[in-house]
Design a protein around this nucleic acid. Structure first.
Lengths: 212, 212
DNA sequence: GGGAATGTCTACCACTTGGTAAGTGATTGG
DNA sequence: CCAATCACTTACCAAGTGGTAGACATTCCC
């Protein structure tokens, strides 16, 4: 009996409110970093959206760069669990590809900031990019292993798994997120057109991966 | 002998120097907008690189937005002539796809800012994105027509040409430019690896377009 | 209850941003 | 040859930028 009263497990009321504040900061920052971009986002702006002052943000995250790191970690974790959840009920083989593509389109619709952050960080380069790469390495390893197994089984055209992965990644993310490119070819991103786009993408991917 | 000294045809020495200055400004701005990004670029920065003052830039281009427009127009023109030159000597059919892909990889190597600007503008959205879309519409129309002809000839899997175009675009640009993604899967972008990547991409594309 | 720790705010700071105003010397056309 | 135009400069400016210092109230633990 070290403590008499259960202090609301893991920290008490204050700690809970602190965690909530940090959560809100991360969410708002993710939104802005992934949407407008990192440099284009000002701490004052984010703070104003939250109804706090910039100094509150800087109390929890000592610098803008540190905030970016935290946002990256949170976004990475979200991505990993998203794919985990999507792949858990999926069967083997092509079903898994479909599950992942469905997830990405879902994200593009519901949480575009997440995919936006990916692209933004890729543009920023190290150290942010390195951090993301490290956080998402699990996914890369898993995907590569999948491709290798399917190649061995003769279900996927034999080739360098890494290069195949990059191609597939580029295609999926591009088709899911490049709204302006879609507009350029005359496609307005409605819900219905998005569904068609996803189907078309799957046909494209299947054709590309399976080979002739 | 009307004049002793050739007045450098079409406007005189001053006009020539003006054009040269504007050229240098555009080049430097393109470099920075395409590399670091639009918001992350300051006019002072660009001016310093050029050895002039920011006010010189603002004399030729009345605002940062106007400068972006000019940069976009110049970059678009460069892109169009690049593809024109690449496609001129190319034969029909698949050779044309190969020529375009080769061009994009060449650009990724020699003028990465050009492709970077494309992506940056796509992120910025209208009005910049609209401007690019308008400028590059020629290419879109041409590519779509190509796909339609090839579909009719039975050389390309039948499907919505617009969607196929978006998929192919995403794949090519992604594979050519996503350096950080490459690093994430353990590929350092050397010259040799780039050549392999291009070949692998062509196999991917061929498989995806032709179908089984 | 009281001192300590904590979370937030007010008040700044030095610096940078895009943009304006007013000049200055070279180039130009008449 | 001279006045006008032109390309460019120096000198500013108001509005932000990320970040620091210190006051203040609340919550915590003993």
């Amino acid at each position: 009996m070290a403590t008499t009263v259960e202090p609301t497990r893991s920290g008490g009321a204050r700690a809970a409110r602190t965690r909530e504040t940090e959560d809100r900061i991360l969410a708002a920052a993710l939104q802005s970093f992934g949407g407008r971009g990192f440099e284009a986002t000002s701490l004052d702006q984010v703070a104003a959206e939250l109804g706090v002052t910039k100094q509150t943000i800087l109390y929890h995250y000592p610098s803008k760069a540190a905030l970016l790191d935290a946002v990256i970690d949170r976004a990475s974790a979200d991505l990993v669990t998203t794919f985990d959840d999507a792949l858990a009920p999926a069967g083997p083989g092509w079903e898994r590809v479909e599950a992942v593509v469905r997830s990405v389109f879902r994200l593009a619709l519901r949480r575009p900031e997440l995919l936006g952050l990916l692209r933004e960080v890729s543009r920023l380069g190290p150290p942010a990019a390195t951090r993301v790469a490290h956080n998402l390495d699990v996914l890369v390893v898993r995907a590569r292993a999948f491709l290798e197994v399917e190649m061995d089984a003769g279900n996927v055209r034999r080739s360098d798994p890494n290069l195949l992965l990059v191609s597939a990644y580029s295609t999926v993310i591009g088709v899911a997120t490049e709204v302006e490119v879609l507009r350029a070819v005359g496609i307005e991103p409605t819900l219905r057109s998005t569904v068609r786009r996803r189907q078309e993408l799957l046909a494209f991917l299947r054709s590309a991966l399976v080979g002739s």
